[in-house]
Each structure stands twice: as structure tokens, then as C-alpha cells.
Design a protein around this nucleic acid. Structure first.
Length: 597
DNA sequence: GCCGTTTTCGGCCCGACTGTTTTCAGTCG
């Protein structure tokens, strides 16, 4: 049965959290509450849309979703609502759910304030709360005081500024911020720093980062913290304790530092790398074996003894599993794989032999951006990166300003120039590609004869992002069917923090790519990181090949490849999944293959 | 409500912080 109710995972997660909040107030069994919350988190982070799983009758494949919740969601997809949830939620004052978005608010606080202050209008709940706080109606309530009243106002202020959530920075930005801080610390406290490492989502290489977290192993924590809090770019010290400190720095971002003794380094690194879901699952596992985990080590539940770990890999080994690379610590099967000693050997940057999407300033008169640097200067950087080959893939000549003949002339001249460079450059190979728009009808503007002037093409969407899922899928498939196309570039079209991608039927796209031996790109450009990691994993599960490209528009951008590798690793990719790991002869042969879909 | 080294019954992650309290509840990561 096909549903007409296309609830997104995020919407479902929010619904389940509302039910959990209501159950909390109703005094339900706390483990039932926990079950709803963990199901919400699992669905929010699932690699497939719950709706698609429902279509296939596989909702219960999501860990934390059992028969009960699956039945409720079945009703949701069939009828658009869940009778049982409606009954439960109706017992609550509706305005309380609107307060849950405020920092420091859980179900109990939200419920109590809504009742005590008589807040009735859900759409105006936060404003009414603000008014009450300003009139000092909150401090006099039992279990509240002056401070909590002030905290509530501050929370509302942050919420209104949009700083509560989703004000995340790009991985690349966060990484640079961390690197700057690390060099400052090494310069000024180098002697005291025994080990230093990034933590949290930054270490896991998530595509967007909230706070920057760092860890240092040292014998002199006070001295290190003193130097940290003296960072010249800080605006304010948010927190300072014996084991760590937090700074607000001038860009408005928060950075946290944790310090510990070298004996505790492994445990601490494990604990603060997360993810939260990974750690919860790991602790559940450890508990089965009679152990309890924390940032101080592994405690035996039998005798209360804590075993310390100076190295993280020994920590995992002690639990009977392989060391798990941070990038895949998301509780999506990595713990089971590590226990079975079946973790994939994730691809590494050094295995990448070339960049498959770059733009030089060679002028093919495109409608999109040209690159800023010459082919020669980009080749020099590529050589420094020890690449075996570099692809140039300028945008196609603009459609409206050129006749077919003119386009052929431009490409002929470009090929001649590349041939000239190939003769004078012997230490690196050049691949002659073009990035071509897929227009609204799925047509590529490549005149007859272009196939003789190019090694191959990337195809991508640059306009009309608003088509529906079905129409967009047809458009893409038609575009990819062109025999010259070998790679589907920045496939979702997302721009992090700016634009959601368009919708595609991924099952159909993946099958097409597999059947026609075409590859899908992981675009390493900072605000793209597209294909996203979750879809990377889906792609390689089906055997679809990946192509890595920086989309460099100047020679410095060629250094962004490591972020593409991070995405690949988060998607569980091995070298064998990625065509950039092939040598020049193999990749050239593959690019020149002509497959009409 | 979920789930399975032992367990289809009987468990269910850990510690810190904060603000309000006289010993703890709520929230967070």
C-alpha cells in the first residue's frame, strides 16, 4: 500500500519525543519513556527514510523500534495520525511542547510553567513565558528562584537569536579553528603537552560542527589551562574547572578543552569522541559483561575496581572488539562489526591518486564560474600532493551564447591546449573532462562530435531545483543516460546551512548507476560534502562506485580532498569502492567507456 | 516499550552540573 503521508524522519522523531514528554508527565514507566526517546533518536539518525522502510515492511529494522512503535507508525503512514498518540497528547496542555525547544527545558519544567503561569496559546507560549519572567512571576514559584528566572530569559534570548541549535559551522571552518588553537597551544605550552587531539563531532568528521572540542594529556593541567584561557582570540571565558575550560572566541564560537593525565588518555578520548548513541550502545554491551564505562576507565561491577587506559585501542580490545575508527562511531552497526572482527578497512587519503573534479581558468565561456588559476599552476599543486593524475572539468560552454559549431571549436582548442600540456608535463597525467549541466528536460548541451574531444563528463544539476521527486529523478536519469557521462556530480545539490537538496528516488538512481557502470561523486567542497555520508553507505552497499572531487576553483582548493575522504570514511568506504584509487591507465580506460543508459 | 554473550523475563548508560534544596530533581552531553 502506498502512503500519501510523507512524514520525514525528523517529523516522526519530534512526534515520538512529544509522546515521551507526555508519558514523563503522566508518570509512565520511565523505561517506556526511554524507549520512545531512543526510537526518536534512532529514526532521526537512520540512514533511510522511515517511510521507505515502511513501504518495504522493514520499520522494525531500525534499532529501538519494536512491534508497538512500528504499529503506531504504520497507522501514521496509512491514516496521517496515530489514535493512541492523540489520546495521550490531549491530556497535556498543548503549549508545553512549544517550550521544549528552549535550552534547559525538559518535559517537567515546561509542563510546570505552562500550568502555573496559565499559558494557553501554543503559538504564543514563548512570548507569554518571557512576559511572566520579566514580571518576576517565576522566581516565586516553588523550586524556582532568581537565577532560574534569569536563565529562562537568557535562554529565550538565545532562542530568538536562532543560536539554540542548527547554528553549526562547516567541518572545514571548525577544523581550521581547531588547528589555529592547536598551534597556539603547542607554541606556548609545547613542553607540557604530551598528547593533543580533537574530540567529539570534529574527530568523527561530521559535516557540520557545533562546538570545537580538544583534549590534552599533561602532567601540569593548571598550567595548560592557564595558557588556554589566555588565548588572544578569546572573547570570554565561559567556564573554568580543574579538568577543563570553555572559551567564547571572537568569531562567536565556543571551544572546549579537556585535560587529563596520560594514564587516562585512552578512556577520555573514547568517552568524549562519542557519538552519544555509540557510547550508550557500548556501555550497554559492557554492562552485559559486568563492566561499567566512563571517562575514567572501565569499572568492574563485581569489585568496583577501575581499570585505566592510556590508549584508546586497548580500551576497545578490553571489551573484546577491534578499535573502531571515530568516523563510524554512530551506532549504525559498527559495534557488532568490531565484535565480529569484521570492520571494513576504511579508505585513507594517501590511497587517493588524483582529483576528479577541478576548474582551471581556461576560458570555455561557461555560464557558471570559471576557476581562478591556470592549468599549469594547478598541476604544480597536484604534483606536490603526489597525485598521479589531475582532471580538469570546467563547466560546459554556456548554451544560449554558442552555436553547436562554436562549442566544438572551443572544445577542440581546449583539447589542443591539454595535449600541449601533456607533452610538456611528464610527472603527472591530465584527464580531460567537462562538468555539464543537466537541463530541466534532462538534456545535456553536448553537440555531436564532443565525444572525440573529451575523455568523459561529469553531469550535475545547477538550475530548477524545485521539481518534485519523480520528475527530478526522471530528469537526472535522462541526463546520466548520455553516453559521455561517467560521473553524477554533487548529487543531492545541497548547500550546507543554505539549501536543502532536491529530492530523488535514490533506489532508482543507484540501480541505474550500477547497471550502467557510472559513478557517483563525493564532492569535497566545504559547503557541499555531497553525496552525504549516509547515502554513501547506501551507494556502496549496492556496489555503486564513488568518485572523489574537490570541485576546486583555485589551486589552494585542491587541498580539500581530505574532507571528501572523511565523508567516504563516514560512509564505510574502502579503497576498492573509489575510482580515484585506480592507477592512470585504469581510470582513463574507464572514463573513456561509453555507456548509453 | 525494547531486547537478547547468560535473559522471551527482567533487566534497561554514566557522570557532571545547576539551582534549588537541606538530600535532590531535572537537564545535558
Amino acid at each position: 500500500m502506498k502512503s500519501i503521508y510523507g512524514f520525514t524522519n525528523l517529523e516522526i522523531a519530534r512526534l515520538l519525543r512529544k509522546v515521551a514528554a507526555a508519558y514523563t508527565i503522566l508518570g509512565e514507566n520511565r523505561f517506556r519513556v526511554l524507549a520512545y526517546e531512543s526510537a526518536a533518536t534512532a529514526i532521526e539518525h537512520a540512514t533511510s527514510e522511515a517511510k521507505d522502510l515502511w513501504d518495504d515492511g522493514k520499520l522494525e529494522d531500525i534499532p529501538g523500534v519494536g512491534k508497538n512503535i512500528a504499529d503506531h507508525l504504520d497507522e501514521l503512514f496509512r491514516t496521517g495520525k496515530v489514535g493512541h498518540f492523540e489520546v495521550v497528547l490531549k491530556k497535556m496542555p498543548p503549549a508545553m511542547f512549544n517550550l521544549l525547544d528552549l535550552p534547559g527545558f525538559g518535559p517537567k519544567k515546561a509542563h510546570k510553567l505552562v500550568i502555573e503561569l496559565g499559558i494557553n496559546d501554543p503559538h504564543n507560549a514563548i512570548n507569554e513565558l518571557k512576559k511572566a519572567a520579566k514580571q518576576h512571576q517565576i522566581a516565586s514559584l516553588k523550586n524556582f528562584g532568581e537565577k532560574s528566572e534569569k536563565d529562562i530569559l537568557e535562554g529565550i534570548r538565545l532562542y530568538e537569536l536562532g543560536q539554540v541549535k542548527e547554528n553549526r559551522m562547516s567541518l572545514v571552518f571548525a577544523d581550521q579553528l581547531a588547528e589555529d588553537l592547536i598551534s597556539y597551544l603547542k607554541e606556548n605550552a609545547g613542553e607540557e603537552i604530551l598528547k593533543i587531539e580533537k574530540l567529539g563531532s570534529l574527530r568523527r568528521r561530521v559535516s557540520t560542527i557545533g562546538d570545537v572540542d580538544l583534549a590534552i594529556a599533561t602532567r601540569k593541567p593548571e598550567e595548560v589551562l592557564k595558557i588556554f584561557t589566555g588565548y588572544p582570540r578569546k572573547k570570554q571565558i565561559i567556564e573554568r574547572g580543574p579538568t577543563g575550560a570553555s572559551l567564547l572566541i571572537s568569531s562567536g564560537r565556543q571551544v572546549d578543552l579537556r585535560v587529563c593525565s596520560p594514564e587516562d588518555w585512552g578512556s577520555m578520548l573514547q568517552y568524549f569522541t562519542g557519538s552519544k548513541q555509540h557510547n550508550i550502545h557500548l556501555r550497554e554491551w559492557a554492562r552485559q559483561g559486568g563492566n561499567s564505562l566512563s571517562e575514567y576507565g572501565i569499572k568492574s561491577l563485581k569489585n568496583g575496581m577501575i581499570k585505566q587506559f592510556s590508549e584508546e585501542d586497548i580500551f576497545y580490545k578490553y571489551l573484546g572488539m577491534e578499535w573502531i575508527p571515530p568516523e563510524i562511531r554512530e551506532d549504525t552497526g559498527e559495534i557488532e562489526a568490531a565484535l565480529g572482527k569484521k570492520l571494513p578497512k576504511l579508505v585513507e587519503l594517501k590511497e587517493i591518486r588524483g582529483d576528479l573534479q577541478t576548474h582551471s581558468n581556461y576560458n570555455v565561456e561557461p555560464s557558471h564560474d570559471l576557476g581562478a588559476d591556470t592549468m599549469e599552476s594547478m598541476l604544480q599543486v597536484a604534483k606536490d600532493l603526489n597525485y598521479e593524475y589531475l582532471a580538469f572539468s570546467e563547466h560546459n560552454p554556456s548554451v544560449s551564447n554558442h552555436s553547436e559549431e562554436q562549442i566544438i571549436n572551443i572544445l577542440t582548442a581546449r583539447l589542443a591546449y591539454i595535449e600541449h600540456l601533456r607533452k610538456s608535463t611528464n610527472s603527472i597525467h591530465i584527464l580531460n573532462l567537462l562538468e555539464v549541466d543537466i537541463d530541466t528536460k534532462g538534456i545535456l548541451n553536448l553537440p555531436k562530435g564532443a565525444e572525440l574531444l573529451l575523455d568523459g563528463c561529469l553531469a550535475s544539476i545547477h538550475s530548477n531545483f524545485n521539481l518534485g521527486r519523480e520528475e527530478m529523478t526522471k530528469r537526472v536519469i535522462k541526463g546520466l543516460s548520455h553516453p559521455l557521462v561517467r560521473i553524477f556530480a554533487h548529487p543531492t545539490g545541497r548547500l550546507l546551512g543554505t539549501r536543502e537538496g532536491y529530492e530523488l528516488d535514490w533506489e532508482t538512481i543507484f540501480r541505474f548507476l550500477l547497471d550502467n557502470d557510472k559513478a557517483i561523486e563525493i564532492n569535497a567542497y566545504p559547503n557541499r560534502l555531497d553525496l552525504p555520508d549516509t547515502l554513501v553507505r547506501e551507494a556502496i552497499k549496492r556496489g555503486v562506485k564513488l568518485s572523489l572531487g574537490t570541485d576546486a576553483h583555485n589551486k589552494e582548493d585542491l587541498n580539500l580532498m581530505r574532507f571528501g575522504v572523511s565523508v567516504a570514511r563516514r560512509g564505510w568506504s574502502q579503497a576498492s569502492d573509489i575510482i580515484n584509487t585506480w592507477d592512470y591507465d585504469k581510470i582513463l580506460l574507464w572514463l573513456k567507456k561509453r555507456v548509453r543508459g
